[in-house]
């Protein structure tokens, strides 16, 4: 239980890390084994053509449903993190509202195959071309690029767990009521992540590289909001009537 810094012991970091890793394993939507089994199940040529022939509204709705489903698992991830539930309700809502999509994007790298640039979507893997009908090629290709770059860091499940938590419990969100409390927790998570990454990676800069991806995560979320606003201008009834209520609450 030696002290690493004032008020932080190795024992406490380990408890925080184990709690976060457990939460991640319980709420990650697909286990590593399930993903392994699905690995080379790709959508067929006919299935991809079927996605491409959908109307823009229908595919947007399908994607909104999948994103919302993933977000529900992220909410549960947060709820099982002891430190997160000790924050005030205002900050819990704020952190989830602003960070849930970023966490989904981090988690996405688990379900991304960098060997053929495919992502797990509705039960099988498919490439970017599957999403053509959305009409936001820039966003889709940026998301795929991000997933590929995250995969190249070869993060373990533990590292993905801790990095997801660090992205969620972020002091960069405006209007936090207790920013110092959030900062203390985030620092401990990064300490724990650093400790684990030093053991697992030859590259001393692995953590710095990972932190360096955070601006891209924020940019992807901004781009998503912009695309949604543009889509809603053209198809307000689709969004109002057919999109999941949680998706509208978070992004509208």
């Amino acid at each position: 239980d030696s002290q690493l810094a004032p008020g932080v012991s190795m024992g406490e970091l380990d408890r925080i890390a184990q709690n976060i890793i457990k939460s991640h394993l319980e709420t990650c939507q697909y286990t590593a084994e399930e993903l392994q089994q699905l690995a080379w199940q790709t959508h067929s040529y006919e299935e991809v053509k079927m996605y491409q022939s959908k109307s823009r509204e229908v595919l947007w709705q399908q994607c909104a449903i999948q994103i919302t489903h993933a977000i529900q698992y992220v909410v549960e991830f947060a709820k099982r993190i002891t430190g997160f539930m000790e924050l005030c309700q205002n900050d819990q809502i704020l952190l989830l509202k602003s960070g849930c999509l970023e966490v989904v994007l981090v988690r996405m790298c688990r379900a991304f195959n960098p060997l053929n640039n495919t992502v797990l979507f509705e039960g099988k893997y498919g490439g970017m071309q599957m999403f053509k009908a959305l009409g936001c090629d820039d966003l889709v290709s940026a998301v795929f690029d991000f997933a590929k770059s995250l995969c190249s860091l070869q993060l373990t499940e533990e590292e993905i767990a801790l990095f997801s938590a660090a992205v969620l419990i972020s002091t960069d969100r405006p209007w936090l009521m207790e920013p110092r409390k959030v900062q203390k927790l985030q620092e401990k998570i990064y300490f724990a992540l650093q400790h684990i990454m030093q053991k697992n990676h030859m590259d001393e800069d692995a953590l710095a590289k990972l932190i360096g991806r955070i601006p891209t995560l924020a940019a992807l979320c901004t781009l998503h909001t912009e695309e949604l606003q543009a889509f809603q201008q053209l198809h307000p009834e689709t969004v109002n009537v057919l999109f999941p209520p949680l998706y509208k609450e978070l992004f509208n």
């Binding site: 909410v75 099982r80 309700q89 809502i93 509202k97 209007w175 209520p245 949680l246 609450e249 978070l250």
Partner: peptide, 17 residues
């Protein structure tokens, strides 16, 4: 914030699913 995020607030309040 709670008023504008009823669903999120409810998810946070509900017992673990």
């Amino acid at each position: 914030l709670k008023e504008k995020h009823k669903i999120l607030h409810r998810l946070l309040q509900n017992s673990t699913s």
